[in-house]
Design a protein around this nucleic acid. Structure first.
Lengths: 153, 153
DNA sequence: GCACTCCTGACCAAGGAGGTCAGGAAAGTC
DNA sequence: GACTTTCCTGACCTCCTTGGTCAGGAGTGC
């Protein structure tokens, strides 16, 4: 139940691309790496994955760089996380709807389904445009407004 | 963003212990392993961790076994997951409230906080008693009642 | 032709996942 | 006191992931 460096980096780089979308020109990997303090060569692998998933496009050579394949308000954080981390909230590498529990654990399946649904409620609502503008969806506002959301357990 | 085998096993074994709480007698590891089809020796390590976290108690020898340290309605799934997997929803192994993002990723922190809060909303509400009885909290009911909660993406 | 930038695969060290194995240490029974 | 039972613990194992680095190849633009 943790967020990998890769997913974190991917979302941050994508946010930079979203912000640069107005410029109408590709952004170099180097600039993304510097803006977000991400190791360049590692970032290039991540951007390649995003490209393979159709989230990002790229051109080589002088004047080359990366850009978002779609408008920033049509790309969700969930998509990016899935592109680099794979499916969200799988249990033992299988989707929760495919698991069959026995005995007293029978209702655990519903719990894992609920876990996944609650993650989706956040990650699929937030777009890159939201992230850059800071105008996050109301669901995020509700969840972060409780003071104990900001403290460890 | 996945659930490990260890966490899944831990919750399932704990559910068995919760169901056996009425018996007033310890449950052997072997019985737990058979009931939930978990490799016995692996399960023993997990139960040991749960014991170290004060969730489970144990006695050795004939008539020995494991039992819950507290009533089943006072033990949440969140506790069990934390005991075996560590803190929930850390980013790059640091808690989201400690991360400082730069530039266009500034508001990403709020998103990760929301992710953690939404996970807690589920995992801290469900107790072992809920799990065994099948009477899950309303938040779970709401999340699992949407049909697309049960399909892959 | 040359500089620039992405693209790709190989590699690497450390650690986690998901176990197994072997033995020791309490607790109960006879 | 011996014996059985059951938990307790550490060592070990294989495979995979994480978080990178390195080296070179392949388009693109001037």
């Amino acid at each position: 139940m943790r967020v990998s460096a890769k997913a974190d980096y991917a979302v941050r780089a994508a946010a930079e691309l979203a912000a640069a979308q107005a410029e109408e020109a590709p952004v170099k990997g180097e600039r993304l790496a510097e803006a977000q303090e991400i190791p360049l060569q590692f970032l290039e692998h991540i951007l390649l994955e995003l490209k393979h998933h159709g989230i990002v496009r790229a051109r080589r050579g002088a004047k080359g760089g990366y850009w978002l394949a779609r408008p920033a308000d049509e790309v969700t954080v969930a998509e990016i996380v899935r592109a680099v981390e794979g499916p969200i909230a799988h249990v033992q590498s299988t989707p929760p709807e495919d698991i069959e529990y026995r005995g007293n654990a029978e209702h655990l399946q519903a719990v894992w389904i609920a876990v996944r649904a609650s993650l989706r409620n956040v990650l699929e609502e937030v777009t890159l445009a939201d992230l850059v503008s800071g105008e996050l969806p109301t669901v995020v506002g509700e969840l972060t407004s409780a003071p104990d959301a900001w403290v460890a357990r």
